[in-house]
Computed example of a mutant assay.
Amino acid sequence: MANTANNRPTYAPNYTGPRFLGAPVGDFSVFQTLLLTVACGVASFFFATFLAIMGMLVMTAAGHKPDFSLAYRWFGLPVGITVLVAAACYLGSLLVRRIRRQSV
């Protein structure tokens, strides 16, 4: 029989709640939920903007003259807002579920 004790995470070995990429996310406070939501939105905005700018640089090398401000308006902002709303819905539902479970 294989020893599975070595494969268990050591940072929260008895945690049975929801996890995101292996990290326990069900016990966040209101501040942690807001902070992680904003961080996800901002990080996705910058990553989408970076990818759009890199794509426009390739277009520049091909002879086009793109307007780089479009990377923010058409790519970065919509992706950032979408991820911000999705993270707020997911993490907010976990927070509400935890608060309701504790009040019963």
Rank of each mutant, 00 (worst) to 15 (best):
P13K: 04
A71F: 01
G63D: 03
A87E: 03
Y11G: 00
G55N: 06
A39H: 03
I81W: 05
R73G: 11
G17E: 04
A61E: 09
F50M: 06
Y72L: 13
G22D: 07
R8Y: 10
P78L: 04
Y11D: 12
R73S: 15
D67E: 12
V30K: 08
T49S: 08
Y90F: 14
M54S: 11
L57D: 07
S69P: 01
A43L: 14
H64V: 02
P66Y: 05
Y72F: 14
L51A: 06
P78G: 05
L36A: 09
L84R: 06
V58W: 10
S29W: 09
G41V: 02
K65L: 11
R8K: 15
V83T: 14
T10I: 11
L51V: 05
V104W: 04
R97S: 15
F50G: 08
T37S: 06
A2T: 07
L84G: 06
P24R: 01
R101I: 13
Y90E: 06
G76Y: 10
H64W: 13
A43Q: 00
F28Q: 05
P24N: 08
R73Q: 13
M56Y: 14
A52N: 04
G26S: 03
T16L: 08
A2M: 11
G22W: 08
S103Q: 15
N6K: 15
R19D: 04
F20R: 06
L57P: 01
G26H: 02
D67M: 00
F50E: 01
V96W: 09
A52T: 02
V42T: 12
F31I: 02
A62L: 15
F68Y: 14
S93N: 13
F47D: 01
P24K: 04
C40I: 10
M54G: 02
N3F: 10
M54L: 12
S44N: 09
A62T: 11
M1N: 13
N6V: 15
P66R: 00
A87T: 10
T37R: 05
I53Q: 03
V96L: 15
F46H: 06
L91T: 03
V25W: 05
V58T: 03
F46G: 08
G22I: 05
P78I: 09
S69D: 10
V30D: 08
A12Y: 00
V85S: 11
N7S: 14
D27N: 15
G80F: 01
C89T: 14
A52W: 09
F50D: 00
L70H: 11
V104A: 13
L21Q: 04
F31P: 05
R8Q: 15
G76F: 10
F47A: 12
Y11M: 02
F28K: 05
F68H: 01
V38T: 06
D67H: 02
R19F: 10
V85M: 09
R73W: 14
G92N: 06
V42E: 10
A2I: 09
Q32L: 04
A43Y: 09
F46T: 02
L77Q: 00
V58P: 02
V25P: 04
L36M: 10
N14Y: 08
F46V: 12
M59N: 12
T60H: 09
T4G: 06
T60E: 12
V25A: 08
N3T: 08
G92D: 09
